[in-house]
Write a protein that binds this DNA or RNA. Structure first.
Lengths: 348, 348
DNA sequence: TGCTCGCATGTGCACGGTCACAATTGTGAG
DNA sequence: CTCACAATTGTGACCGTGCACATGCGAGCA
């Protein structure tokens, strides 16, 4: 904690000008590195800035240029590992490009809250929006408010060039499913994410496509809410009502809850049941047993989203946005289908 | 994605004034709800605003008032559950109070990066700073840059009125340790967090205080880095070199890694070894076995930090900041000390 | 030598609010 | 009916930068 008592105004471009013996405009030119300035003048000005600890006033700049150099990030799940990671990457990339990032977090995703959060971001005159709250409702509100700012959704609704992301999700889910099929599993069930999340849908789609490819059948996926609690609940349900030798959960948290339920029932993993998750959150390699999952490049996704937004804002993008294709990380929660599986499961 | 072609300037206070047939100043008064305005006039102006979709320009306001209504959050670990949760709470509270939040994330915590991030925030003319990067280095940089903005650290260095937080950390650690002592454990080891994190220090301190109170002895704590990977490594080390019946890990991730190592060694939890974590991250209730841990009110901490910052910024705080004392959540990873423990452990 | 041209720099205003102060209108007492 | 005084509204300057345009100056060329 600290503060200066005088509370005087910060030095302005004119203060610098006076000290350097030039006009304020010349100082401005230095700030925007205009080509034609004598080197000696420039040096003098830079020194004056240094001396006064000059710091350009963003508000004034925004006012006069009509550009805030700020983007808004609307997130509905900033406490989850993936989104948090992506947001961090967005912030990092944006900062490098001289942009500021304003975040608005949705604790509840009802329309009023969504609108409130968007209003807040718009009040800041953001030049673009990144949405990490892929519920359809958000887009409804976005539509209704007739937002005049370019926006990009991390989860891709398919309208813009982030489509690649959705494809990655499908691919990842196919890889996970294929992995189980290759291990000999024939009765595989899927615990999906919330219906209105594009990611959840893509993963489910990938699962179903692969099941179809392998000419297998499956029960309708259970629709969850991403939480470990739900995974636990789903596990209990599955044990009560279904025959299966493998489960593909749409994210690691649900997979974790599922493991818990299976353990509770005295089942061996992967002896009795194989489990595969999605995301590769940091604890996945230390669950018991360590979780087979699909690794995602959350940071790449974030960078890509920002690049895409810059594009939509009319800026040419010239920095690496390198996304990585998802890859399967086979650990110990998945294994060959047990020969003696059926009698064991029938008990439940 | 969407955009208006005309690209005309947004309506200003003067446009509203013209439409309502008043002076721009009167409009301004409505915006700042000045007391003496005729109701009829006010109504007319409000309607004009509505009609023009008027939105006050924050940049202009900031420029003329010299206040940005923005606070900066510097975080070094925004992808971890606790900090993420606190940041979300800060953002939420700030928004409710009409403040904007600018975040800068430290991917690496070297002085240059810290300085860069701080520069970025100061460029935005933030009125206050919340630091969630409690490494001492950050404060060194803060000192060196002679920041003129009030700041508050989420982890409390003891200089300001967040001291309560540190006390909570100590208390929580004491509760965890006491829990193990009460179960009959006499050889308890501690896996601590990084040395330069105030939280890690507070938890270690709580542990040592309680051990002392119980007139027990302990090995010097192992200094970790908060990650599950480290917890796993630490577990292997402990098994190789120490006798113990219980471990108190400074956070849940490390506790998780530790569980993994213990499982690998074929040990039963809590039959052979009891484990207690700290934080109560959402997956803790679904690890195997479910983890006994200390629940923290991350949101309360965030709110409290913001309130404290407002105080430092000279604003009277009049909203609930309710922090919750930490509480022990006893699950299945801790149990009575095994009678036949010593011979079993000696093997390692 | 006179004129054009490009570089380096200066002048004045606009951006969209707020503030201090002035002007106008309304109200009640004498 | 008049006047003091409060309630309401208006006027103009200013916050810090950037832009459009003007100016001064030296070089190149006929």
């Amino acid at each position: 904690m600290s503060a200066e008592l005088p509370k005087e105004r910060a030095p302005s471009i004119r203060d610098v000008a006076r000290l350097a013996g030039v006009s304020h405009q010349t100082v401005s030119r230095v700030l925007n590195d205009h080509p034609s300035i004598r080197d000696s003048t420039k040096a003098r000005i830079l020194q004056a800035m240094e001396e006064l600890q000059y710091r350009p006033n963003q508000a004034a700049r925004a006012l006069s240029k009509g550009r805030s150099r700020t983007i808004g990030v609307l997130t509905a799940s900033s406490t989850q590992y993936g989104p948090a990671r992506s947001v961090a990457a967005i912030e990092d990339t944006a900062r490098r490009q001289g942009y500021f990032v304003d975040t608005a977090n949705l604790s509840v995703a009802d329309p009023a809250a969504i609108e409130d959060a968007l209003e807040h971001l718009l009040d800041q005159a953001v030049e673009g929006l990144i949405i990490i709250a892929p519920q359809e409702r958000v887009f409804d509100v976005l539509e209704r408010m007739s937002i005049e700012v370019p926006y990009v959704s991390l989860q891709s609704t398919g309208n813009h060039d982030l489509r690649a992301l959705a494809e990655d999700q499908i691919l990842g889910a196919k890889m996970a499913t294929r992995h189980l099929v290759d291990l000999g599993h024939r009765e595989i069930v899927h615990i999906a994410g919330p219906q209105d999340w594009t990611e959840a849908e893509a993963r489910m789609q990938g699962f179903l496509l692969e099941i179809d490819d392998a000419e297998l059948m499956t029960h309708p996926p259970i629709l969850g809410d991403w939480t470990a609690d739900f995974g636990y609940f789903a596990g209990q349900e599955l044990l009560r009502s279904r025959d299966f030798s493998a489960v593909f959960a749409a994210n690691d948290e649900m997979a974790l809850g599922l493991l818990h339920a299976l353990h509770d029932a005295g089942l061996d993993i992967p002896g009795d049941v194989s489990v595969v998750g999605f995301d590769d959150i940091p604890v996945s390699s230390h669950t018991w047993p360590p979780l087979t999952t699909v690794h995602q490049d959350f940071e790449g996704i974030g960078r890509r989203a920002f690049a895409s937004l810059l594009g939509a804002m009319g800026t040419i993008v010239d920095f690496p946005t390198g996304p990585t294709a998802p890859c399967l990380v086979a650990r110990d929660s998945s294994g060959p289908v047990p020969v003696s599986r059926l009698p064991l499961l029938k008990r439940y």
